[in-house]
Amino acid sequence: MAEVIWGLATSHVPSIGAAMDRGKTDDPNWKALFDGYAPARAWLAEHRPDVAIVVYNDHANGIDLDFVPTFGLGTAERYEVADEGFGRRPVPDVVGHPELSLHLVESLVDEEFDLTVFQELQVDHGFTVPLSVWTPDPGDQWPCPVIPLLVNVIQYPQPTAARCYALGRALGRAIRSYPEDITVGVLGTGGMSHQLAGARAGFINPDFDHMWMETIRTDPARLARLTREELITQAGSEGIELIMWLVMRGAMDEQVTEVHSDYFVPASNTAAGIALFDNRPPSA
């Protein structure tokens, strides 16, 4: 059976990828963010899974507003990196894992999560920036095959936090029921507090972010009770994308060990967080 060995929560702000692509990681505006990534990166380099699942949202690159799937899963062999307008990021295309994808779709639909299936999908910064946070220098391929799990967070009504957490729990069961003995890493992306438009643009809420970062480990069910309105009020209109961390967390065990976490303001207009959890029993 497959096993989730770690979960990584991270912001997916495009400027983090741009800072890396343009060699600006030692720039005074960025250095503290990347220094904060270092311990997680070192640990992850020692714990390469067989497959990873990235929970993310698209930002007008892979899909448009003709179709707004609440949840979607990629089943392709490859995912091309999208050109978001000014050339694609200089990072490798993504190799998928169709066998595990199809198993996940079937298990999740059996559990009544009726996902949209993507046989073709270009992945944008929401997907590639978390991979770069994990692996800054991938060379010509990412450390393992990766499966995209899409969540609509840009058009109201987004799925509830509770539904995201429940999806994560079902995802964990689906992974554990995969017949092959493989290891899986799950990435929950987005956040933390931010708002891009309106008179309240630039809103950041460090108290909420710190509460979230702590509670995602200790009591995710409590976060799952937050309403959309509470999330938008406390984390900003785009900060609601933190619900994607709950999908990742749900796929892990009740008890997880924090390997590393860090918090940085600002990555462009956003509070950037990283939290890495070991999902193996403490004795392992």
């Binding site: 507003l65 058009q155 109201y156 309106g198 309240r200 938008i232 209109s237």
Partner: peptide, 20 residues
């Protein structure tokens, strides 16, 4: 929430051509 545009189904319907 004042000062906080919420991009909802109605906005999306109105803005579809422009967003495309």
């Amino acid at each position: 929430l004042p000062g906080t545009p919420v991009f909802d189904g109605d906005s999306s319907r109105r803005g579809l051509r422009m967003n495309k």
